[in-house]
């Protein structure tokens, strides 16, 4: 785990990394003042993104940050990997679509839980997903 002004950065390559990330996400959400229900939901969205890195991107990083926009504060998660990338982003984010053995619920639930979710990816160029949740 690395810590800089940009927040907490975690290397992700194996399932045990996920538990550490989820734990830290919850601590951060708690400190920011998210209520318990939202802490759990947002942490599960973080877990979706890191699980996808392990499953499809092989390895990458998860960054957790506290962000500000005018008078709002929010939580941001950035999932980055240099894996194969996603060729059809819209399809990937559709409920029930999975190229593997998953249920295909991960990305669609991230979209539902978070206020903003941006997926940047191209076949062969890795994936970067940025999701934000504003407090209030």
């Amino acid at each position: 785990m690395g810590k800089n002004s940009d927040g907490l950065v975690f290397e992700v390559s194996e399932p045990s990394d996920n538990a550490t990330i989820v734990y830290n996400a919850r601590q951060m959400l708690l400190q920011m003042g998210f209520d318990e229900t939202r802490q759990y939901l947002i942490a599960s969205a973080v877990s979706e993104l890191s699980t996808n890195i392990i499953r499809y991107g092989e390895k990458g990083t998860i960054t957790l940050r506290c962000i500000r926009k005018s008078d709002k504060i929010g939580f941001e998660v950035i999932a980055r990997d240099c894996g194969p990338g996603i060729s059809d982003i819209q399809k990937a984010a559709t409920e029930n679509y999975s190229s593997g053995h998953g249920l295909g619920l991960g990305l669609s639930s991230v979209k539902r839980i978070m206020d903003e979710c941006e997926i940047k990816s191209a076949r062969g160029h890795g994936t970067c997903i940025i999701a934000k949740k504003w407090l209030m």
């Binding site: 989820v22 919850r26 759990y40 942490a43 599960s44 877990s47 979706e48 699980t51 998953g102 249920l103 295909g104 619920l105 991960g106 639930s109």
Partner: peptide, 13 residues
């Protein structure tokens, strides 16, 4: 189980 992501959910299913 407070944090139930799609993977854990699929195991339960």
């Amino acid at each position: 189980i407070k944090i139930l992501d799609s993977y854990i959910f699929s195991i339960f299913r």
